[in-house]
């Protein structure tokens, strides 16, 4: 299980990353996350939609309604250019965090408490 704080913090890069693979909608995004995390990330709707709306209002993503063949409407989200730039920044930041942690957790780490 992933903690709530971590989920919240990672929501922005995760969503941006998923959308960088192509436009998607709420339900699908949740499904993707569930699959990628091997069932360990249980994002609730309550977490997802507000973030989507925030990213939308920040101009990182944009939404559009699409009518399905069965007549049902679905709201799709896609990255904007700003969104793509933001994703690059996010990637850099998260890789940085990742590297620090990897080094720290390496038993041969040069860092010691001496």
């Amino acid at each position: 299980m992933i903690s709530r704080e971590l989920k919240a913090a990672s929501s922005k890069p995760v969503i941006l990353s998923i959308l960088s693979k192509g436009d998607s909608y709420g339900y699908q995004i949740l499904q993707d996350i569930l699959e990628l995390s091997g069932g360990k990330w249980e994002w609730s709707e309550a977490m997802l939609y507000p973030v989507l709306h925030r990213l939308n209002s920040e101009g990182l993503i944009q939404s559009r309604w699409e009518v399905q063949e069965n007549g049902r409407k679905r709201k799709y989200y896609g990255l904007t250019n700003t969104g793509r730039e933001a994703l690059v920044t996010e990637q850099a930041q998260w890789m940085n965090v990742h590297n620090v942690l990897i080094q720290l957790w390496n038993p041969n780490s040069k860092l010691s408490m001496e």
Binding site: Y27, Q28, Q31, E45
Partner: peptide, 16 residues
């Protein structure tokens, strides 16, 4: 608008 979106979400979930 949100309601509509959530409804669509619900329907997807039901399909799933």
């Amino acid at each position: 608008g949100y309601v509509e979106e959530m409804t669509s979400h619900l329907l997807d979930k039901i399909d799933g």
